[in-house]
Design a protein around this nucleic acid. Structure first.
Lengths: 195, 195
DNA sequence: GTCTATATGGAGATAGAC
DNA sequence: GTCTATCTCCATATAGAC
């Protein structure tokens, strides 16, 4: 029986998942390469076979919560339907993706200052693009009269902060949890507190 | 002329403010005591005359964004008026306090894992108390029929995430900025997107 | 209240064997 | 692909003079 090994690609995924969990708990700078290595049962030095630095691991985490939503959720805004219908679809997809990658969101939302300037700029671009697309669908609905006239930029930021904040307090990630949050948030956002 | 000195209490405030600004930018663990000291023109060792550890500085920052809102904003929920009126007053006070202590909010919202277990528990208590009071006023309004029936716990968390998220993107802190955000958020929350 | 000097520990990262 | 061993640097915190 030879030494236990894993293929590189599989190990990369494993490292990113483990790192996301620990960093979400303790903060990026407080977590050492040794902590990440311990979590998956290898030595700290072995991590450098898969990532050239600690920051590259953080970058990978941030990509999954910025690039992925852009590619998977934003096409829903181009589908047929009114702005309200398309925004509803986006909200559900956003919450689903967020619950699927909960710890990665916690890290990606709060540890961006620790990225290198180049990576930081790329991640910020994804975030700004996502925000802009939400703002645009809001503005479209306001022009058509489906939505009331509000500041579309502030409204977009408020909605996204509300959605992303879920990563900070949700416990389970069952379908019931997802549905509860989506139902409450869409009712609140579209119809408001007043009956 | 003797050596330049400052009274302890004034220095403490100065240290906390400087630390909040730097930590909001770079993250708690990435900031050294020397960085904080440099920002106010003293040596790193001198900080230990005012705070016994780096964590004590973080604790002071967290208190200003948890204890202060509990003491200053929550009484508005006990004032005369309907739940809707009282919630409106709280939202405005919350945003005002947040813009007044913007960097402290950024730190207090994201760096709580770095606190000692005892301090962490105390800060979390303030947060939970604040959340509960918001949830209670929502539940009261739902019972009286002023608000529609939604999950009050999820609704409270969603509203507070939306409010606190402002610290992450607001630029200026003029009265106009405050009023814009308050007006948009109250319209969105109370009446919703649909006209 | 602030300083200089320093103790002590732990971090990220590398070299080279297996 | 993972290991052991190690380099180098910088962090928090302390001691004691001024």
């Amino acid at each position: 029986m030879t030494t236990a090994r894993k293929p590189t690609s599989e190990r990369r995924t494993e490292i990113v998942s483990a790192a996301a969990g620990i960093v979400a708990d303790q903060g990026y700078a407080a977590v050492g390469m040794r902590d990440i290595a311990d979590a998956i049962g290898i030595r700290g030095a072995s991590l450098y076979h898969h990532f050239s630095s600690k920051e590259e691991i953080l970058y990978a985490i941030c990509l999954t919560v910025t690039q992925e939503p852009c590619e998977q959720n934003l096409p829903l805004l181009d589908a047929p339907g009114t702005p309200g219908e398309r925004l509803t679809a986006l909200i559900r997809a956003h919450i689903r993706h967020l619950l699927h990658r909960r710890v990665e969101y916690m890290v990606g939302l709060h540890e961006r200052p620790a990225l290198s300037p180049e990576h930081r700029a790329e991640i910020d671009d994804y975030v700004h693009h996502y925000n802009r697309r939400v703002r645009d669908v809001l503005a479209e609905g306001m022009r058509s009269g489906e939505f009331r006239a509000l500041d579309p930029g502030i409204t977009a930021l408020g909605i996204l902060d509300m959605l992303n904040g879920v990563s900070g307090w949700i416990r389970g990630t069952t379908c019931d949890d997802t549905d509860d949050v989506v139902a409450t948030y869409t009712a609140l956002l579209f119809t408001g507190l007043r009956p």
